[in-house]
Design a binder for these strands. Structure first.
Lengths: 204, 204
DNA sequence: CGGGACTGAGTGGCTATTCATTCATAAGAC
DNA sequence: GTCTTATGAATGAATAGCCACTCAGTCCCG
């Protein structure tokens, strides 16, 4: 990959353009929906010609994939890093939840793509499921199991189901935030979710 | 609306064909996704000509709307009925949750349309939000508030948020069920969700 | 017959993708 | 230093295919 011409220290132009197209796509998809978005719209939003898009992406669909892949990768990496910084399972879950909503709340357009556009077809869902999504759920699950072994959480609960419940609750917060006309901070909602959740799953 | 020709007691032919198209659409949308479904596919699945679809629906989009409107109406009516049959707020929520998953679990194709296809665009989401969806959330919310006044649930919790949490958790159960290859009963998951949820929100 | 239900081939509009061409820059020759 | 040639990134007009929707005509019932 770096065999040919890796000498030139900077290739800012290349990266910039690919990046510009991705950002433009997020904005356009968020506003019009994936299926109603024209490649021409993305190109003009990015300030490039239609054809240029195809120098960086194989197809319109690949753009959506790239958005998902990159964001998910970043999110999981950030999540793991947060988790390492504490050993208390409750605190770990708190950080995961907070981070989850903080990331989505920081970029409304990206949040729309994640919460709405990526759900728009079983085909996508299944592909994405297989990819990072399942990994994210299992990050929550294993953290919970850790807490079960430590005696912090109720041992009789099914960790897989518990993970889905927490994820589902957070997911709904995000979706509602997107659809709401009122503007409020998304991340703090994590505390309200966790209050109920932790209260529900903690060993007495 | 019923001013013209409400005399004919039965219009089975009309109803039958409209019904057949709706059912066919649910199946086709569930398998291919809304945007990848051709009106011609729906017509042939329903056993009618392309043009016939337009005798019953103004557009492809209206078909999707009709599916949503009818199902949501039924679901809410069924929910209210269940609620009337008990006065215990905890039991009311239990019935709502169970019913929620039971209905989706009974018709996989319909569930796919609801969980996946209807989420595929902010435009739809907003319209649907405005319609029955918000009503459903507020059904949960007011039941919860009732419980708060009765001293059963923690009074300091924000009922709106609580409703979203319960809904989100159930919603995630349904989505996961759809995507899962393994076949299991969806409705019983309601108990696991409620176990944690009620434990989390109940006054001590 | 009259009229409504139904048909399905055809039309129009739309848009993802391609590709011949342009042009700024790099590389080499002197 | 400057002219010539090579390179490939970028362009955007053209293509090709798709599909929602229409409508002229057929069918059938009373």
């Amino acid at each position: 990959m770096r065999s040919a011409r890796s000498i030139n220290s900077d290739r800012p132009v290349v990266t910039d353009k690919r990046e510009a197209i991705l950002r433009a796509a997020i904005r356009v998809f968020a506003h019009n929906g994936y299926f109603n978005s024209k490649v021409a719209d993305i190109a003009s939003e990015a300030g490039v010609a239609d054809g240029t898009v195809y120098l960086y992406f194989k197809s319109k669909e690949e753009i959506l994939h790239s958005i998902f892949d990159r964001s998910m990768e970043e999110a999981i990496a950030a999540g793991r890093k947060q988790i390492e910084q504490t050993s208390d399972p409750r605190e770990k879950l708190r950080r995961i939840a907070w981070l989850h909503l903080e990331r989505l709340g920081a970029d409304r357009d990206l949040a729309v793509v994640f919460q709405v556009e990526l759900r728009g077809s079983t085909k996508f869902m299944e592909e994405f499921s297989a990819a990072g999504f399942a990994e994210y759920l299992s990050l929550i699950r294993s953290t919970f199991e850790e807490g079960q072994h430590a005696g912090v959480f109720r041992p009789e609960l099914n960790a897989k189901v518990v993970a889905k419940i927490l994820f589902g609750a957070l997911d709904e917060m995000a979706t509602n935030w997107i659809l709401s006309k009122r503007r409020y901070k998304l991340a703090p909602m994590a505390d309200q979710v966790l209050d109920i959740f932790l209260n529900g799953v903690s060993a007495r």
